[in-house]
């Protein structure tokens, strides 16, 4: 894939850390909060940052849903999920940058590839350990994660270097009542909202969705209803991975640099979001992701971009100290 050409040169004039990729987001930062031009400008700036935070939060939501759904049905944190997101970003990028696909086709291709990847991961790495102690599956998950990262770093796969994504369309900023919003932000939010609605429909209006909900409550009881628990678990991995893939493609368009380790930090953030909202609870994942997006963006904009992650994870620790089951989590009641 892309074997014939040289990897793009590393940027010399910008320091790129492994997890940056937020260039366009913060490019227009104004250090004006404590400066002179307080007033309307500040408000507009804040709103602008809130919109940036929404964009980031919505992307985290797509990843967080996979964590929370998989946890729901198998009570396992799929630590390879962030790497599925990375594969999704790459497949999307290859789709519209190298194979000449229109963006929606690239998104769907990426979702399909990652759905299969998710199912395969579950079959190979988790299913044989279903009845083993939880720690075994956890270690297996970390193994899959590292495998995907380093396998994708191989020259004949994606290669270890950063790649610059050529956006399939120009970024356009619109000014609405002084607030700047870009076509990419609109695209991200509309796409994610659409997917959330589809997921909601699937879970609450279809047979497979109801089966997923019962499996997340009680495997044996679901079996006794005639639910094939193994296939429901596969479907869950497929859906979660497809959502992460969509998130990956959007991410590649919004923050257009990708590399095989790009999934680690968004993966961790999304996992944090899922835990923050209450792991296993779908609205919780979305809520947690939106909070994470805001905290991160606002911290970077108004405090310090170095503190961004520290504060985001600090909030997780605080919330868990007060509410160990997450914001929307139910306190476990003793079963009689």
């Amino acid at each position: 894939m892309g074997g014939g050409e040289k990897p793009p040169p590393r940027f010399k004039n910008r320091s790129i850390t492994a997890f940056s990729g937020f260039g366009p987001l913060y490019r227009n930062r104004q250090h004006s909060l404590l400066g002179v031009d307080m007033g309307v400008d500040v408000l507009e700036h804040v709103i602008g940052q809130v919109i940036n935070g929404l964009q980031l939060g919505f992307m985290y939501a797509l990843i967080a849903l996979g964590y929370t759904m998989v946890y729901g049905v198998v009570k396992l944190i799929n630590f390879a999920h962030g790497d599925v997101f990375m594969v999704g970003a790459f497949v999307g990028y290859l789709g519209f940058n190298q194979w000449g696909m229109p963006v929606p086709v690239a998104v769907l291709t990426s979702m399909a590839v990652c759905a299969i990847l998710g199912v395969v991961i579950e079959k190979i790495a988790y299913r044989p350990l279903r009845y083993a102690p939880k720690i075994a599956a956890l270690i297996s998950a970390l193994g899959v994660s590292l495998f995907l990262e380093y396998f994708c770093s191989l020259k004949f796969i994606f290669g270890p270097n950063y790649r610059v994504v050529q956006r399939p369309f120009e970024e356009v900023h619109w000014q609405l009542a002084g607030i700047s919003i870009s076509n990419i932000q609109v695209m991200v939010m509309v796409t994610v909202l659409f997917m959330l609605l589809m997921l909601q429909y699937l879970l609450y209006r279809t047979k497979v969705g109801m089966a997923m909900r019962t499996v997340s409550l009680d495997h044996d009881a679901a079996r006794l209803m005639g639910v094939n628990v193994d296939s429901v678990i596969s479907v869950t991995f497929a859906i979660g991975s497809a959502l992460a893939a969509a998130g990956g493609v959007l991410y590649a368009i919004a923050y257009p640099q990708i590399q095989p380790f790009m999934g680690i930090m968004p993966g961790l953030k999304a996992f944090t979001a899922a835990v923050l909202g209450g792991i296993g609870i779908i609205p919780g994942a979305v809520l947690g992701a939106l909070i994470m997006g805001q905290v991160e963006t606002l911290t970077a904009a108004f405090l310090s971009s170095q503190l961004r992650d520290a504060i985001a994870f600090g909030i997780l620790i605080l919330v868990l100290l007060v509410r160990p089951c997450g914001i929307l989590g139910k306190t476990e009641t003793e079963k009689v």
Partner: peptide, 11 residues
């Protein structure tokens, strides 16, 4: 119909 009923409480 299993012991402890095993109904789905969230449904």
């Amino acid at each position: 119909v299993p012991e402890g009923r095993k109904i789905f409480p969230d449904l």
